[in-house]
Amino acid sequence: MPVLVSGLLAVGLFFFAAGTVALLRFPDLPSRLHALTKADNVGLGFVLLALGVAAPDPVRIFKLVLIWLLVLVASASVCFLVADEARRRSGTGEGR
C-alpha cells in the first residue's frame, strides 16, 4: 500500500513539475494556459488518487473527489476567461 501511494504521488508530482516547466518555458499565453490547466489537473488527480488510496474512510474520499471536481471546473472556466480577455485585448479576435 505505501508503495502504491508513493508511486501515485510521484506520478502526480511529475505532472506538476512538467506543467510548471512548461509555464516558465512556453512562448505565449495560450500554450502556457494549456500546460497549466492540463498538466496540473492530471497531477492533482494523481495526488488526490494517492490520498484517496490512503484515506481512512469513504467520507474522506468523497471530499477529495469534490475538491478535484471543483478545481477542474474552476481551472477550465478561469482558463477560458483569461484566454478570452487576452484575445479581446490583442484585437485579433474575430467578430469583436
Partner: peptide, 15 residues
Amino acid sequence: PPFVLASLLGLVAPL
C-alpha cells in the same frame, strides 16, 4: 458578466 464567469459564479458562490 461573461457567460462562463456568470455560470462559474452560480456554482462557486453557493458552494
